[in-house]
Amino acid sequence: MAVLTALRAAIASPRGAPSAAILALAVTAAIAAPWLAPYPYAEQNLAGAMMEPSAAHLLGTDEFGRDLLSRIIYGARVSLGVAVTAISLSVMIGLVLGAVAGYLGGWVDRVLMAIADVTWSFPEILIALVLIAILGPGLSSAGIAITIGYLAQFARLTRSQIIALKRETYVEAAISIGSGHVHVLARHLIPNALTPVIVAGMLAVGDAIILEATLGFFGLGAQPPLPSWGALMSSGVAQIYLAPWVILFPGLVIAVTVIAINLFGDALIDALAIRNRLKDR
């Protein structure tokens, strides 16, 4: 399959190799957190609060004496988990809406795209804040906010792919042999539109991590004691002079992960040669 070849080429490329390694590490941390973390993430030890990085606590401890490394590892589970789940949902819903709009055209298209344009014209963070004001703070609210915030992007991208593909002769050929709408969409249009949408989704995971961290930072995402990277940074603000590592390490982890996602996505775009197809994003 072309996608597998491209994935392999992206992993082998100079940009792709280090970023793929970092992403593999982050994903492993998220999946295997209970086995990798040296301490339970919520275990307090007030006697050992705000300790500098040491052999016992590689990244030090926070104001409750919780091991920061363990919290970051568990935080990967929360931050990546929310970002990936929310974006996957967003991609799936966006794909269906965009495909229907692009395929049917007419008023369905106009209504769906008018809604998409309105949501698109506000920054994702604003949409998220409004939704959280309605739903109340919490991890699931943050997830729903991310899903809806990025929906327009995927719907628009899918729609533009579908409109371009609709003109391909093989689509006309499929209709001429008597195919119905569902067959044309499911067998011809969506499979050929999928690749750029999925890559865009992958890149959006990076943005979603930052959005989730921002919400977490303001206390609107994961609620204590559940650690998310943004919440960890938030708790570090108060100790920024006494224990700077509490804000520094989560911040670094976010930055490195997001950069790795973008670099790897970029390498993948080149390997798949779909840069021009993503410009409608």
Binding site: E168, T169, Y170, A173, R187, N192
Partner: peptide, 11 residues
């Protein structure tokens, strides 16, 4: 169809 190059789904 006229264009054999695009009349078959590449997948």
């Amino acid at each position: 169809f006229q264009d054999p190059y695009s009349s078959i789904n590449p997948r």
